[in-house]
């Protein structure tokens, strides 16, 4: 009887102190993620006209009016729910999809910030686009992923309108 009581208390404690906070982190994290994705999609549609090219070719048919370096950065961190899931996946291996969405958000946001800067220069396209991802705070066992910085940069080019 006492053993069963102990078991029940342990289960209740685990649920209260592990799964309830994790559930909260999950809900809050998901809420912010959805909000961010919605804003990314909305802003991405604004800059569809501006092409992004990883090669350094500038259209030889047109006259270049102005050019300049543009860059966009995002520093992103994980939340405890994502870290918990990542720890579980670490045991069996495989895709850590919780971090994939996080990095997807960071990359798209960095590209958007770069495009926003280019749009201020009324650029027509961005050439020689480069992307760099860097872990600025290495993770440990408790935190498998620390803080990651994503840097996107390229050369914004504006062509003369009257050819």
């Amino acid at each position: 009887m006492e053993n069963i009581l102990e078991l029940v208390i342990t289960i209740v404690l685990v649920v209260v102190f592990t799964f309830v906070p994790l559930g909260l982190y999950y809900l809050v994290g998901k809420h912010f993620e959805n909000k961010h994705f919605a804003s990314i999609k909305q802003r991405e549609s604004l800059y569809l006209q501006m092409s992004l090219v990883p090669s350094d070719l500038v259209d030889p048919q047109q006259k270049v009016e102005a050019m300049g370096l543009v860059e966009g950065t995002v520093v992103i961190g994980s939340d405890p729910f994502k870290r918990y899931i990542a720890n579980l996946v670490n045991l069996i291996g495989g895709r850590v999809s919780v971090f994939e969405t996080l990095l997807d958000r960071a990359r798209r946001e960095a590209v958007l910030r770069m495009k926003e800067k280019a749009a201020k220069m009324h650029a027509d396209e961005i050439v020689n686009f480069r992307m760099e991802t860097m872990s600025i705070c290495s993770g440990n066992d408790a935190k498998p992923m620390g803080i990651v910085e994503v840097l996107a940069y390229g050369t914004a080019v504006r062509y003369a309108k009257n050819k």
């Binding site: 912010f32 939340d79 946001e109």
Partner: peptide
Amino acid sequence: MAGLKNLFGGELTGYTELLN
């Protein structure tokens, strides 16, 4: 602030500014 923000994940604006 970044530590607090890190509780919920997402962008750490303080660090972004610092690195910029």
